[in-house]
């Protein structure tokens, strides 16, 4: 009896996923923790000319040149400030390393599949293509970002498409 509950538990746990929760303004977002390489402060970014404004530039991450994207600018947030609390989440997507600037990182959450609701058709700023769903956690709502899709999308202009 005990064994079966254990097995059922682990099976359910296997489907649970862990997310890193970060904030952009008042909103809470989440990314799959397995995509996150590290979290560091915002510093020493070299501007890239003629790039979109949300691409802040590139920085040196232990000898590797990494582009830095400010999601707050990308998502048209009103207040974009750089301070001691400004955090860069370094993520790995499709063999690339990219840093994303966010207002803060709060915690790591485990969500079970039934806590993740499908994302409704969204507005213009953030296409629902880039969302894996909405996480509901008591009275909080987490926007779960499909970071792979978002960062490799054409509109992020991070990846060069082969000319057809």
């Amino acid at each position: 009896m005990n064994q079966t509950t254990d097995a059922a538990l682990t099976a359910a746990e296997a489907h649970n996923r862990e997310f890193l929760v970060f904030s952009l303004g008042e909103e809470e977002y989440a990314v799959d923790i397995l995509k996150v390489q590290e979290i560091r402060g915002y510093e020493n970014v070299t501007r890239i000319a003629n790039a979109p404004d949300f691409i802040k530039g590139v920085t040196n991450l232990r000898g590797v040149i990494v582009p830095i994207v400010d999601l707050r600018i990308k998502f048209h947030l009103d207040k974009v400030e750089y301070g001691g609390q400004t955090v860069v989440i370094v993520v790995n997507v499709e063999d690339r390393v990219v840093g994303i600037v966010v207002d803060g990182v709060s915690d790591v959450m485990t969500l079970s599949p039934d806590q993740i609701k499908p994302a409704p058709e969204f507005g213009v700023t953030l296409s629902s293509d880039f969302l894996s769903g909405l996480g509901s956690l008591e009275d909080r709502m987490l926007v779960i970002v499909d970071i792979d899709k978002l960062l490799t999308s054409d509109e992020m202009e991070l990846v060069e498409r082969v000319a057809e």
Partner: peptide, 12 residues
């Protein structure tokens, strides 16, 4: 260092 490893080609 290659810029294209993680980013893309930048004109100039």
């Amino acid at each position: 260092k290659n810029l294209e490893t993680n980013y893309r080609k930048v004109p100039g």
